[in-house]
Design a protein around this nucleic acid. Structure first.
Lengths: 203, 203
DNA sequence: CGTCGCTTTGACCAGTTGGTCAAATCATTC
DNA sequence: GAATGATTTGACCAACTGGTCAAAGCGACG
């Protein structure tokens, strides 16, 4: 087991390689579908060597999820109560869409976990996630009360942003199968921008 | 192997029980995460008995997917060129949302398959699905040309409907973790209705 | 350059999993 | 109710998988 002292250069390099490889494999096959051998090979390590850095398959997965939830919620955290409501929400939507383009593996890792009932992060959903969403929907409700954006169901608004943006990462194969050559991310921003402007522009 | 003659009553009953059990298990754990034993137990059969009806795990999965794609696309097929554009599209959205409520297992089976790269139905996506979507986007484009609904990117419009509606089935745990007691399907229809009315109402 | 602790590995193990098979049981038909 | 074919099952197998371990390799430091 790696010592708890300051990690050596080799430690840092190998742990990073493992997490990157594991992200590849877990996001493509789900937890159960991924094998330690696959991950080890993708990280250019032998299986025992990999297990020297992470004592079990589950530990790797946990490390990924832990690291993920924070970055995943960062865009919502950044929603600023003092900014212009419509522009704040649009900025959130665009940040989220960019994450789907730039970090599709992370999105799919998350999707795999949730679709299968979130067995490993259910607690975090009901605590951290719910708390954050409750806070932000309060802000949004405030904006609606002040008549600065149209009134819609705040929670469903958030859900719609999640689903619309993550769809381009999670269902990438389907999107590309339908679109053919056209790059989804070339035209998606404008569509989504229009959608939320029309939905939220004050009456 | 079951004979190709007309299936007996036992055949019909057991094959149905297997497919139902398999839908439970596959949708909850993905293909790789599901075990034949699990399915057999859920169907109240011994494993060899189950394999008497379906020669392999993959055959069960294929049977499910095959049956699924048709029913899954039925709501889009029903989109009627001769109807009122906005109402037709709204009807489609609501049909799709109801499928998420009534057939969440089917939705998750599909989601599992697509998120993991659609290894088993990629061909069908590029042929059947694409053909259908192309046909229907032509219809939609026609409506836009005639000024009967607002002009937006037709493909992204379809994607948005898929993602918004299926989200309630695929990410059910997350939605419920955030919403708490409130039933998602009590408030979702109105939200989505509003969204598409605002997006599509002619200028 | 020798030592000591970090890193790497080949060989191995026990549990699981998809699938087989011969034999037993059951249902139908004559 | 005997014969025939459909259905069911316990026992079994080979491949795979997560994980272990003792021993070998390697690098930094005195």
């Amino acid at each position: 087991m790696p010592p708890s002292r300051r990690p050596s250069r080799i430690q840092t390099r190998n742990r990073a390689a493992i997490l990157d490889a594991a992200l590849d494999v877990f996001s493509a096959h789900g937890f159960r579908g991924a094998t330690v051998d696959q991950i080890a090979k993708a990280a250019n390590l032998s299986k025992p060597n990999l297990l020297y850095y992470f004592p079990s398959k589950e530990d790797i997965h946990n490390a990924l999820l832990e690291q993920l939830l924070d970055t995943w919620l960062a865009p919502l955290r950044a929603l600023d109560e003092t900014g212009d409501p419509l522009e704040e929400l649009l900025a959130y939507v665009h940040r989220k869409l960019q994450m789907s383009r730039d970090f599709p593996r992370e999105s799919r890792l998350f999707a795999n976990e949730i679709v299968q009932g979130a067995p490993r992060i259910h607690a975090a959903l009901s605590s951290d996630l719910k708390t954050l969403v409750d806070t932000k929907t309060d802000v949004i409700r405030g904006w609606m009360d002040a008549g600065r954006i149209a009134r819609v169901h705040p929670y469903h608004l958030i859900f719609s942003i999640w689903s619309l943006t993550q769809h381009y990462a999670d269902f990438d194969v389907q999107v590309r199968a339908v679109l053919g050559q056209e790059d989804p991310f070339a035209t998606a921003p404008e569509f989504i921008d229009t959608l939320y402007r029309k939905l939220l522009s004050p009456p």
